[in-house]
Amino acid sequence: MTSASFWLMVLGMGVVTYLPRTLPLLLGSEMRLPLWLERWLKLVPYAALGALIFPGILTVDPARPWIGILGGIAAAAVAWRWKNFVVALIAAFTTVYILS
């Protein structure tokens, strides 16, 4: 990656991360959106999570896609049972580490 395209990427990432966080605070609580847009915005994070998890998780070990799946199941089980973020990461990491 050339230095110019790296800077373009970081700058762009910075802007598209900062603006969604800050604009609503600047506009204040008066901001009202159409109902359908509000619903769509609420669902976007979960749609994105689904798209990010699958099929990407199969590439954790590209030769053995089931390793990623098992790591994911470990994370899901811990997150569901104990709702603990850090422990879920550790469980997934340990599972994959042992299997590979």
Binding site: Y46, G50, I53, T59, V60, L89, A92
Partner: peptide, 29 residues
Amino acid sequence: GIILYAMFIALLIPAAAETLAVGGVAAAG
């Protein structure tokens, strides 16, 4: 490599367990 996916899953699961639309939309995604 699994940490990234574990993070996404840990963010998703608690909400999906509570609201049908969350799990459905994630599966569709």
